[in-house]
Simulated assay, not measured.
Amino acid sequence: MTELTNSPRILVIILNYRTPQMTLRAAQAALADMEGMNAELVIVDNASGYGSAGILTREISERGWDQNNRVRLILSDTNGGFGAGNNIGFAAGMSDGSAPDYFYLLNSDAFPDKGCLPRLLQHLRDTPKAGFAGSHVRGEDNLDHTTAFRFTSIAGEFEGAARFGPITRLLRRSVVAPDLPTETARVDWVAGASVLIRGKMLEEIGHFDETFFLYFEETDLCKRGANAGWECWYLPHARVVHIGSVSTGMKTWERIPAYWYASRRHYFVKNHGRLYAAAAFLAKLAGGAIHTTRCALTGRPRQDPRGFYRDLMRFGLGLSLERPQQLSRRPVSEEKS
């Protein structure tokens, strides 16, 4: 018991939005990986409605997870998005009132393999300047998900939109989503589906910027960490299965919602200034024009969502997208059953 008490304190945070059964599955996988560690789990229900809170409360009690505060459920009054929901978890701390040494963010549709969290923890303990450690993420089809990135830039926006081999080779050092490292490596930022974060770093740089409703909030947090001298690492041997886009409904989007454009603009303006943001906007439009022209000439299907560049242009010019209903996320099929 003394050994466990003296080990690092870890708070696992799972954010639920209208996927209670999926969240319970993620919690069960996390609890199995937390075995033998000085760790607790907090589930933050992000104002789901649709009976989520009742399902989670009942299941946590019936499974005995609430014994010794192993699992706590926190109900948010509002849905402020991914960052705001996780900030509630950050603020909760350990059940005895102490501050965690590390926070592990796990998506509600992500399920750690045995040994994932211990590997992430060991890396942060062995690497004093590491503020983030992200895991390898794969789908249920066993295909890799890209979760390790470079910070986006003007050149990266142009390359990513153009999707043209000669341009990619010329700007290879600016590719935002390069091939995944096969060994543990430093990267600019990692996705928030499965990431261990050092508490000391958060005390220094602060929590998520709640201006971001969804998307770019992890990029911004890692950017602030990098600016303060903290490192971000990707660990391919710490692994999770991730279904992806369950609570956001992203896979069923016909068009990109307004909050994505808002988050993108806020990231560039906040971190680089308005002139840089404008240049990045123009670079993306220029790259998109190249891609659209090539597709028209070759007959290949375009790879952008319907109306993407029209909406990007309208949002960049400060015009309404006339789709205010997409500022909040829709319920998904799990809640309708």
Rank of each mutant, 00 (worst) to 15 (best):
I197E: 14
G49L: 04
A30Q: 02
L41W: 02
I55E: 09
A238T: 03
E210L: 01
L285S: 12
G49A: 04
F149L: 11
F132S: 09
G287V: 01
R300T: 12
T184K: 01
F213D: 08
G97S: 02
P128C: 00
A193K: 00
I154T: 12
L143N: 13
L221Q: 14
F132G: 12
V137T: 14
G51P: 11
A27G: 02
K129P: 00
T219H: 15
E210I: 01
H207M: 09
W65F: 04
N38C: 00
R329A: 07
L282W: 04
G307Y: 00
A191E: 14
S98H: 11
R119L: 11
A277C: 06
G81Y: 06
M313E: 07
P8A: 10
E254F: 01
I43S: 05
T298Y: 03
K114Q: 12
D220H: 15
G229C: 08
V190P: 07
A53P: 08
E62P: 00
P257Y: 00
T19H: 13
M94E: 06
V332T: 09
P181R: 01
E183S: 05
A286C: 03
A162P: 10
G244M: 04
R329M: 14
T146E: 11
A84Y: 06
W260I: 10
T211S: 01
Y104A: 08
G80R: 09
R25W: 08
P236L: 07
G192L: 05
M37H: 11
R302Y: 05
E218T: 11
V332E: 15
A30G: 01
I243T: 09
R302A: 06
L327H: 09
E140S: 09
